[in-house]
Design a binder for these strands. Sequence first.
DNA 1: AACTAGTGTGTATAAAATACACACAAAACA
DNA 2: TGTTTTGTGTGTATTTTATACACACTAGTT
Lengths: 253, 253
Amino acid sequence: MNRVTLHNEPAADTPVIGQKNIKTILKQLESDGIIGISVDCVIFGFDDNELKVLLIKSDLEKFDNKWSLLGDLVNNHEDLDEAAYRILRERTGMDDVYLEQVKAFGEVGRHPAARVVTIAYCSLINIEHHQLKILDNELHWHRVTTLSEMAFDHRKILDVCYEWLQKRIQEHPLGFSLLPKKFSLRELQNLYEAILDVKLDRRNFRKKFFSMELLEDTGELETDVPHRPGKLYKFNYDKYKKKERKKWFGIDF
Amino acid sequence: MNRVTLHNEPAADTPVIGQKNIKTILKQLESDGIIGISVDCVIFGFDDNELKVLLIKSDLEKFDNKWSLLGDLVNNHEDLDEAAYRILRERTGMDDVYLEQVKAFGEVGRHPAARVVTIAYCSLINIEHHQLKILDNELHWHRVTTLSEMAFDHRKILDVCYEWLQKRIQEHPLGFSLLPKKFSLRELQNLYEAILDVKLDRRNFRKKFFSMELLEDTGELETDVPHRPGKLYKFNYDKYKKKERKKWFGIDF
DNA sequence: AACTAGTGTGTATAAAATACACACAAAACA
DNA sequence: TGTTTTGTGTGTATTTTATACACACTAGTT
């Protein structure tokens, strides 16, 4: 589990690069023959039993009406992780969020205005905690499964991050970042079924998770459900961190 | 399996950036407040039943006598993969080599001369095919396990790539790139034992690989061994590629 | 009071991983 | 030429893990 926590703000003498002057900067980069560096965040959320991704309307004419990931040029005095975290904070207002680097994309022609290498980050947030801000600007939560064309190579980036997530969620306890702190086992299973696009046996799913002994019974129950309420659990990160990793899983390919 | 194959050389008008003028370029970047971008290759080989990594003596005074990964600034008109491949070709003279991006490292202070973001690549080569060129320059094959301090954050990068390899080799058929085309099962097992630092049962190891049905009996036998010679196999990449990947492996963390 | 919808649990079976032992072949040496 | 050495090649029993599957329970609704 990576919870990036920042201790430093970008240095005060660093000009903040926002959506406004980014075109000028790119033009400058291009004319100087310099490679720009950006980060792009694939921000996943889980809502209505579906995996969603947070996108914004592209501000480039060329990509008129196309959806784009949230990204920005990397500041001169900030780490890559910091840059990704800054974007996340600016856009969602959320702190203490799951964030992890996935891959760098640097094809020569991927940005129309200049040569820009981008580092893709994957972030998982609880969509309900964020609900408030999404109507302020052109941000929207999109289903990842039914998604039309996107700006730049962002479709490719999203695909890579989605596949990364599908794999990662089976080996690491990421999924809980998409859920409220306290969740029912049904919610957890819905999450896995939605992300992996599989049907799972309820009893075996429960058995699996309980056998890991990382779920804590909170003693609370679901409310406002039109049926017998399920127990609410929380994930025990401390216990997970103390667990020793094995380096041998068995060869299989 | 990623076998990067290049179809384009860097454009002719792109100045080739080599070890000679790199310092001048970095100085220029720094004074302009520009972020440089490089690739670093972690080139693994397998020799004497040990995992080795190809390193070079750092040319920076600050890192006098420290070992460094093979890297270079990314050319303006080449993709990241191309840049990594170029380095590989320049240093090892080898083509058609396993190469895969692992991670970007971009901490602010990681390079003493300027802000440089580097993309780390992992490469696996058959050390015997390369034997010839290693004495020409200050290149050396090092054991990965007993390795002293390194230049820059290269120790960190190597560690990440090594862990990446340990995981990757269990899920994808990378290992064969470290062996000759035809290999014995003993060699293959030695490889896995060395990389993962575990002891494996010989019979179960064989059973596992045979059950995958991806090893082809070449009909040939080992030679020059002071005991009963083992059969030589080769890995059937075509068959592997045709296999459908499953997206459900089972939750386990 | 009966209905509905989803929770909570246990067991039988199949598949996979592990542990383990002996016959065989080539080279080395006497 | 036969005896030793060393590592190859194979099969089976046992344990562990994954899968398949059914019925009682409970809260809210009618």
